[in-house]
């Protein structure tokens, strides 16, 4: 059932390295996470002032989605409701929760509080691309490719979505990893079957 859909592209960001499909785009800058995320933003370059107000989880997921979709996704061929997201991580929004908690000792900031939910990264990607379809954020101790594959396949196989961005976006302090996949119903040049094996092998890229 899973092999009917196709991984059109992928992006993995981990340990200072940005991978798109089979190529390294940026390699180990050695900077801390906030500086690294900014350097990725400036590298491409992306012109999106909202980036600066995001927390690190949203920055990481948003950057990964930009790299993933760039030159790989013809969004005009879909209605906004036909594109959605299925994401997961281990630490929810705890990275920003701790920052909000510390700030709230003085004065609670609504701009920090809004990022105390893991699904805000989905909202940021939806706003950027005008994606309005099904989405969900799940918490997993370890990346569960089988679960993600099951959810995404259900949405595509039942024509709830025609394209889905799925994967993992996790940040806690200086530990981080994003692995996003663009999955569609029809194959494209150099696409791979949307199988648990392929999902896991891309996840372990770096």
């Amino acid at each position: 059932m899973l092999a009917e859909n196709h991984i059109i592209g992928s992006c993995v960001i981990e340990r200072g390295t940005v991978f798109k499909d089979d190529s390294v785009l940026i390699e180990n800058t050695g900077a801390d996470l906030a500086e690294f995320l900014l350097s990725v933003y400036q590298h491409f370059p992306l012109n999106y002032p909202k980036f600066y107000k995001m927390d690190n989880l949203s920055k990481l997921g948003w950057l990964a989605s930009e790299v993933l979709l760039k030159d790989s996704f013809q969004k005009d061929q879909y209605q906004p409701e036909e594109v959605g997201l299925v994401l997961a991580n281990r630490n929810s929004s705890l990275d920003n929760d701790i920052k909000y908690f510390e700030s709230a000792k003085d004065i609670a900031s609504p701009s920090l509080f809004v990022y105390t939910l893991p699904n805000i990264v989905i909202g940021e990607i939806c706003i950027r691309n005008n994606f309005k379809g099904e989405h969900g954020f799940y918490i997993q101790d370890q990346f569960d490719a089988g679960f993600i594959a099951g959810q995404v396949s259900y949405l595509l196989d039942n024509d709830i979505l025609k394209a889905c961005i799925c994967g993992w976006v996790d940040v806690l302090d200086q530990e981080y990893k994003a692995a996003l996949y663009l999955v569609e119903k029809n194959p494209a040049d150099s696409s791979k079957p949307f199988s648990i094996k392929n999902i896991n092998s891309i996840f372990e890229t770096i």
Partner: peptide, 29 residues
């Protein structure tokens, strides 16, 4: 940080009742 993780709570709840399958956790506002 590990104690706060929702997967820790889910495991504790699942073990209490003896659920075999790993619980699914949804945190979508």
């Amino acid at each position: 940080q590990k104690r706060i993780a929702l997967s820790t709570s889910a495991r504790i709840v699942a073990e209490h009742f003896g659920f075999i399958n790993t619980p699914i956790i949804i945190s979508n506002a």
